[in-house]
């Protein structure tokens, strides 16, 4: 049964991809918004999560306004997927340099220009994270830690479709530590999403004033390798026109108190992400269960 569902999803995706490839950008964006509205309408559970998260984070206090924002976010998410799929051909035709503006501190700029310096990039599900990695890879090779999709057919197809350039991925579940460290040593950008729910393996760190289980690997990697830590994301300022924004580099020295060191870094990164989300709340993926507490934290 599961296999049949996966095959049906795969077939539907192939149809969507066909249209994405042949239709002009403006029509694709229209389709993305329609699919977003459809998902919004027929996935009430996810809609509720998004609205609750927006209100709990204090982005909107009024339910109706939160609901409007959540609907925009659903549209935005489908748009992220469709624009990412279209970006390789689009950037090839219109030149990627013309589609991106860099708003990064001079020291980050220098790091990106130095082929010998590895960088740990912390990012979140904000703006278009796929295009962020893609454009960044034109300046410096990128290794992204990604989560495999539940549907293996879709997973394989998306991997084939992912813009290659100098952007490689490694699955989150069996990320090889040697490969991650090798990437930093080889002067690559190691891109890590910091807003995934780490469940029982994470550390509870405040995000928008509420504890959220956060992965500790990024902090430990920084403490052990001393590779500079940068926060960055890519926001869309017009159709297929992006601004890559970054802060940092941040450097934290280990003190011997591992838990305190890791917490300090994660709190800092969460604050960076919070500030960025406040700048463009309609581009954040509010519909994920970021604040769902692990069993160990709720068991009393």
């Amino acid at each position: 049964m599961k296999r049949v569902r996966h095959l049906l999803e795969y077939a539907l995706l192939r149809v969507v991809l066909f249209f994405v490839d042949v239709l002009p950008l403006s029509i694709c964006i229209g389709i993305a918004h329609t699919i977003g509205d459809f998902v919004w309408l027929f996935w009430p559970g996810r809609r509720r999560i998004a609205i609750d998260n927006i209100v709990a984070a204090g982005i909107e206090t009024d339910g109706k306004r939160a609901s409007r924002l959540a609907r925009t976010v659903f549209r935005q998410f489908v748009r992220v997927v469709i624009e990412s799929l279209k970006s390789d051909a689009y950037f090839g035709k219109h030149s990627w340099e013309k589609c991106i503006a860099w708003k990064v501190p001079p020291e980050v700029d220098a790091l990106l220009a130095d082929p010998k310096r590895g960088v740990i990039l912390a990012s979140g599900h904000l703006g278009n994270w796929e295009i962020a990695a893609q454009v960044l890879s034109h300046r410096k090779p990128v290794l992204g830690i990604t989560r495999r999709m539940n549907n293996p057919y879709v997973d394989r197809l998306m991997l084939r479709r992912k813009p290659r350039n100098r952007f490689e991925t490694t699955p989150k579940r069996d990320a090889d530590l040697g490969r991650l460290m090798g990437a930093l040593r080889d002067g690559k950008v190691l891109a890590i999403m910091i807003d995934q729910n780490a469940k029982d393996r994470g550390m509870l760190v405040d995000f928008f004033g509420r504890p959220a289980s956060s992965h500790t690997a990024i902090a430990l990697l920084h403490l052990v390798t001393k590779a500079p830590l940068v926060f960055g994301y890519c926001t869309e300022v017009a159709p297929m026109r992006f601004e890559f924004r970054a802060t940092g580099p941040f450097r934290f020295a280990p003190t011997g108190d591992k838990e305190a060191d890791v917490r300090r870094i994660l709190e800092h990164l969460n604050r960076e992400l919070e500030a960025a989300v406040r700048d463009c709340p309609d581009e954040y993926l509010w519909g994920h269960r970021r604040w769902r507490l692990p069993e160990s934290a709720t068991r009393h």
């Binding site: 530590l177 393996r201 052990v224 280990p254 591992k258």
Partner: peptide
């Protein structure tokens, strides 16, 4: 595993 190895390396350095 990878995460515990990072813990281990931190502890060795410290």
């Amino acid at each position: 595993d990878s995460l515990s190895m990072l813990d281990f390396l931190y502890d060795v350095q410290q």
